[in-house]
């Protein structure tokens, strides 16, 4: 082959390789975006894309984190009961990506719940369990040994412990996002959310005698349920997400019998205060039968995920 032909071939290959790599790069980026947002305006003209006249709207669905779930449970008058948590001895059962992701969420909520009630030994136990499941999922740097050590060093400082939990959860989420595994992150969040519901419903033996605020927060989860469904539907091409979505649809069917009517919201900032109050009045209602159906379904789903 002549030198000129060789150079021409190199130029052609160069263009092809760079183009393919660039397309792969864009495709990878789009895949990552799709896990966290919906592009409502996908079809835009080239000129619009260049000049930014038309913008791509991105939508995030944010679920209560395990830490927020635990905080809400405590504020609602929940008590601590270690017997209802998922025993760490179950760890060896979790060998698939789906079971590890669900139980990372479950153990994270158990960890947050234990820490909220100053249960230091349980907190360390559930942090260690979370670390093992995270490692099983290939999230190696989210929780390192120094985290466990910092927990042990701050046993009497709930604020620091909560901050450590928050940091490990942020690490987990961001590492998954960085590695294009946002569907796994969604399953973790749903696992944690189901555990929060399981803890709350398990603490209510008799709906007639139970603390109203805790029941109200369980009813309120109807509002988060819509977010759970939207989040999972973004990733329903993932078989594990599709499985979880089936369980959530079954739960949604029962929640449809729970009534929440929301009044108009008014924003009020009193003089001299820095915190705005969003005033509104929700009217909620649930029959004892529907509540018991909810409790049974939540227990069934949670048992399926932990066993």
């Amino acid at each position: 082959m002549e030198i000129g032909s060789v150079k021409r071939m190199i130029r052609i290959y160069s263009v092809v390789i760079v183009t393919v790599v660039a397309i792969m790069s864009c495709a990878s980026d789009k895949g990552s975006d799709e896990r966290v947002r919906v592009d409502a305006d996908e079809v835009i003209s080239d000129s619009n894309a260049v000049y930014g006249v038309q913008t791509a709207k991105q939508i995030f669905y944010s679920l209560p984190s395990p830490l927020e779930t635990a905080l809400i449970l405590k504020r609602s008058g929940a008590v601590y009961n270690e017997e209802i948590l998922n025993p760490v001895e179950n760890l060896s059962r979790y060998n698939t990506n789906k079971s590890m992701a669900l139980n990372l969420g479950i153990y994270s909520t158990d960890l947050s719940y234990a820490s909220m009630f100053d249960q230091t030994q349980a907190s360390i136990k559930y942090m260690s369990a979370s670390k093992k499941v995270a490692e099983g999922l290939g999230i190696l740097n989210a929780i390192d040994n120094s985290v466990i050590q910092r927990l042990e060093e701050n046993v009497n400082n709930r604020e620091v412990i909560m901050d450590i939990i928050s940091e490990t959860f942020l690490n987990t989420n961001s590492i998954l996002e960085e590695n294009d595994r946002v569907a796994v992150g969604a399953i973790i969040l749903v696992g944690g959310w189901i555990e929060g519901l399981y803890i709350a419903t398990s603490l209510i033996d008799d709906v007639h005698k139970a603390d109203n605020e805790l029941i109200e927060r369980i009813i309120d989860q109807k509002l988060s349920l819509g977010t759970v469904i939207n989040l999972l539907e973004q990733h329903k091409s993932n078989p594990d997400v599709k499985d979880v979505l089936t369980d959530i649809y079954a739960l949604d069917k029962i929640y449809k019998n729970v009534q929440i009517s929301v009044s108009e919201v008014e924003s009020v900032l009193r003089e001299g205060e820095s915190v705005t109050t969003l005033r509104s009045k929700n009217v909620v209602s649930v029959s004892p039968d529907v509540f018991n159906d909810l409790k049974t379904k939540i227990k069934e789903i949670r048992t399926k995920y932990t066993m």
Binding site: R37, G52, V53, T55, Q58, I59, F60, S65, L67
Partner: peptide, 25 residues
């Protein structure tokens, strides 16, 4: 205390994003 969730993206000027979340009483 940060809730631990991560909601971040690369945006270009002129772009917008929406986040849906339930806030508890």
């Amino acid at each position: 205390i940060h809730d631990g969730n991560y909601n971040a993206a690369i945006l270009t000027e002129g772009e917008d994003a929406e986040l849906f979340k339930t806030f508890y009483a």
